[in-house]
Design a protein around this nucleic acid. Structure first.
Length: 240
DNA sequence: CGTATCAATAGCTAACTTGT
DNA sequence: ACAAGTTAGCTATTGATACG
């Protein structure tokens, strides 16, 4: 298990590699210090110089020593491509996860689950040394409605709705409207999904009608995909 | 051309942190 | 408690530029 300082130094050096331009005259140690400071790595120019010298021995980049300050850049045709998350990527992923969750198909969501996990780990590890890692605790998205807690959506229902949407198939649902005593069965032609405030809606036409309506996902009791393809479909600009 | 000045790099050391 | 590693700070050196 690497120590926290090891990890921070490694992330800093990785940030340096990513900040190097791909052509001369390159970036100076001073400019690099500024860029790294913007990313939350507050170290001296001397440290950057040492990092550059260390990295120089390991990677294919160039140092323009002809004029001072030195310019550092990738040799044409080379650059670094390391699978991993920068602090910026980790923070962005972490922040968008909750808001995008209902709008992403489950298959897509689970395929990027490892990245979400890694984002969380990265932020946790950098929390004590990089101020950006704590940013997530300082901002919050509040839905423009009185009810701040998003209503619970039935996971299998969400999955079915997304699949029907993806495959352009009709959907049979049991829907309990806001004024309904009991749920009623509807055959829908799914068109899209909308997140409005804390509530997610399925955009669809019902039965043979052509008027577009919104169905709150948390009010769908159950959902089944039908064999039949979706019928009438207006342009997205007409229903979004 | 020689000198002064300034900025950047590089070497060294002390302080600090972390692992054993 | 100690060893090892990292970083900041100080300083010497080097190179570019301005000026007489």
């Amino acid at each position: 298990m690497p120590s926290n300082s090891d990890y921070n130094a490694m992330m800093r050096q990785w940030a340096i590699l990513n900040a190097l331009p791909k052509r001369p005259p390159g970036i100076t140690a001073q400019a690099l210090q500024g860029k790294l400071a913007d990313l939350g790595f507050n170290v001296t120019q001397r440290t950057i110089q040492r990092d550059l010298n260390d990295l120089f021995r390991l990677f294919q980049f160039k140092c323009n020593e002809k004029g001072k300050p030195f310019g550092w850049y990738w040799e044409p045709g080379t650059s670094v491509s390391v699978p991993g998350l920068s602090i910026a990527e980790a923070l962005s992923l972490h922040l968008i996860r909750d808001y995008l969750k209902p709008l992403l198909p489950n298959a897509i969501l689970s395929s990027i689950q490892p990245q979400f996990q890694q984002a969380e780990e990265t932020l946790k590890t950098l929390q004590s040394t990089n101020p950006f890692a704590s940013w997530q605790d300082k901002v919050c998205y509040v839905a423009p409605s009185l009810n701040m807690l998003p209503p619970a959506i039935n996971e299998p229902v969400l999955d079915t709705v997304q699949t029907a949407l993806l495959k352009d198939r009709q959907l049979e649902i049991n829907y309990q409207g806001i004024n309904d005593q009991d749920s009623r069965a509807l055959t829908l032609h799914p068109l899209g999904m909308i997140q409005r405030g804390a509530v997610n809606y399925l955009v669809a036409t019902a039965f043979q009608y052509q008027d577009v309506r919104l169905y709150a996902l948390h009010r769908i009791q159950s959902a089944n995909i039908l064999e039949a393809s979706r019928g009438y479909k207006p342009e997205p600009s007409e229903f979004f």
